[in-house]
Amino acid sequence: MKRLPLRLALLEATRQLDDAGVASPRTDAELIAAHVLGVDRGRLPLVPLVDPPVVEAIGRIVAERAKRVPLQYLTGYAVLGDIAVEVGNGVFVPRPETELLLDWGLRQIKGREYPVVVDLCTGSGALALAVAHARPDAVVYAVDNDPHALAWARHNADRRAEAGDTPIRLYTGDVTDDTVFAELDGLVDVVLCNPPYVPEGTEVPPEVADFDPPQAVFAARGGLAVIRHVVTMAARLLRRGGGVAIEHDDTHARAVPPLLQARRVLTDVADHPDLAGRPRFVTARRA
Rank of each mutant, 00 (worst) to 15 (best):
T179W: 01
A138C: 00
P206C: 07
A138M: 00
P206L: 04
V188S: 08
P206N: 07
Y171V: 04
V139R: 09
E207V: 10
Y171M: 11
H148R: 13
A149P: 08
P214K: 12
D137Q: 11
V131E: 11
L187A: 09
A209R: 15
A220C: 02
L187P: 00
W152H: 13
G173K: 11
A209Q: 11
A151M: 03
V191L: 02
T202W: 01
A163Q: 14
Q215W: 04
A163I: 07
H155I: 05
A220E: 15
A157P: 09
V204I: 12
P196V: 05
D158F: 00
A220T: 14
P213S: 10
P196D: 08
P196M: 05
A126H: 09
R160N: 00
V190W: 03
D144K: 02
A209K: 15
C193M: 13
V198L: 04
P205R: 03
P214A: 07
A163P: 04
V190L: 04
T176E: 15
L184N: 07
V139P: 00
E183A: 13
A219N: 08
T166Q: 12
N156P: 15
A163K: 13
A216R: 03
V190N: 02
T202S: 14
P199T: 08
V217L: 12
R159L: 14
V204F: 01
L187K: 15
A128I: 08
Y171D: 12
P214Y: 13
Y171N: 07
D210Q: 11
V140I: 03
Y171C: 02
I168M: 03
D137M: 12
N145D: 10
W152E: 09
E162L: 13
P196T: 05
D178A: 14
E162Y: 13
D174E: 13
P195E: 07
L127V: 10
A134F: 03
R169M: 14
A209Y: 03
E162Q: 14
A128M: 12
E183I: 00
A128D: 05
D185W: 01
A142P: 11
Y171R: 10
G164P: 12
D165V: 10
G201Q: 05
A216E: 05
D146V: 12
E200G: 08
P167E: 05
V140S: 03
I168P: 02
A220R: 15
D185M: 06
G201L: 08
A219K: 11
G223A: 04
I168C: 12
V198H: 05
G125D: 06
H148Y: 03
E203F: 06
P195A: 05
T172L: 15
A138N: 07
R135Q: 01
D165T: 00
A219H: 11
L187F: 06
L187R: 15
P199M: 01
